[in-house]
């Protein structure tokens, strides 16, 4: 917590004056700098280590960037449930890796008559929230992609990374295990509920490679690895590719993770990173979580 604690005397003054209405107001009162979301983003731009690109998805999606913020939530996806939990935690500034309004570019022009859109906007406005997307530049962060730095830490795989300059060709050599044991370990560490697998559970595996989302990334990667990881990909791409590889006699396997499984830990990393240069308000990673469950 980076919030300046209220002195007991100040607490009593606020309480008796009726000003102590809730955690957000408390923070607003105790923050002499009245930090805004725009100022936080300015600091992010200075610290990210790469020139800011345009066009970019990394923009304010809703809310007033110049209003004082009460706290920062970092998350994988600013779902309605996440926004509710962020508001309850007293954080009105949400930094999300993925979209808020259900399309890559957060296009809202088609949503004017959508009652869910209105519901979400009303919630955000009522709680004076601001949402900013941090996608392109967090991946581009120097010295390393912030998303995969977080993922490596969550898996405890920092030391297993094979050195490579190609950001689309991330590989690991892990202690040999069975495909099923690897999947179980990953399910537990990444808190997943909807992992889907292709391949022999008993296959001995050690070389693991990131296939991203696309077959274009999977094809050059497969000859170098035993197990391919895909973080959301279309079902006619990697799963069918690996199914055929196995039918052709190759000893390969695929872990098809939900998108969140590949990237959520990177927003935990983001919260840690922000704390180095934002100290006026509390900063908390709140997971939006695996959206699915599978009946078993």
């Amino acid at each position: 917590m980076n919030q300046t604690p209220l002195s007991r005397r100040r607490f009593c003054q606020l309480a008796s004056s009726g000003l102590l209405l809730g955690p957000s107001l408390m923070r607003g009162q105790s923050s002499p700098t009245r930090l805004t979301a725009r100022e936080v983003v300015e600091r992010i731009r200075k610290n990210v280590g790469v020139p800011w690109r345009t066009p970019t998805a990394d923009e304010f999606k809703i809310g007033d960037p110049d209003a004082p913020i009460t706290g920062i939530t970092t998350t994988f996806m600013s779902t309605l449930d996440l926004l509710e939990r962020s508001a309850a935690a007293g954080n009105n500034f949400v930094i999300t890796h993925e979209p808020t309004f259900w399309s890559a570019a957060d296009v809202v022009s088609d949503l004017r008559d959508d009652s869910l859109y209105r519901h979400k906007v009303n919630f955000i406005e009522k709680h004076k929230m601001v949402v900013w997307r941090f996608h392109d530049h967090w991946h581009a962060r120097r010295p390393s992609d912030g998303i995969f730095a977080g993922w490596n830490r969550a898996m405890g795989w920092e030391d297993y990374r094979v050195k490579s300059d190609n950001p689309f060709s991330i590989q690991y050599v892990i202690p040999e295990t069975s495909f099923e044991e690897l999947a179980r370990d990953m399910q537990k560490k990444l808190k997943l509920r909807s992992m889907r697998l292709v391949g022999d559970p008993k296959l001995r595996v050690s070389r693991v490679g990131n296939g991203g989302h696309y077959i274009l990334q999977c094809m050059p990667q497969l000859p170098k690895v035993d197990v391919l990881l895909v973080f959301e990909g279309r079902e006619w791409e990697a799963p069918e590719y690996i199914r055929d590889a196995i039918a052709a006699g190759e000893k390969k396997a695929l872990i098809q993770l939900p998108h969140q499984g590949g990237e959520e830990a990177g927003m935990d990393e983001c919260a840690r990173w922000l704390q180095a240069f934002v100290s006026e308000v509390p900063i908390k990673f709140i997971p939006s979580g695996d959206p699915f469950w599978i009946p078993i």
Binding site: M77, T79, L80, D81, E84, E98, P99, W102, S103, A104, S115, L116, H119, K120, E232, R234, E235, W236, P258, H259, Q260, P291, F292
Partner: peptide
């Protein structure tokens, strides 16, 4: 069958949170 995880998937997650539907079931393409 399937849905994009930054499109219809969070759309349904939000619909469920808002109490507008009970759920989405994806059986695979």
């Amino acid at each position: 069958g399937d849905a994009v995880e930054w499109e219809a998937v969070p759309y349904f997650a939000d619909l469920v949170t808002a109490g507008k539907v009970k759920g989405l079931i994806l059986i695979g393409q």
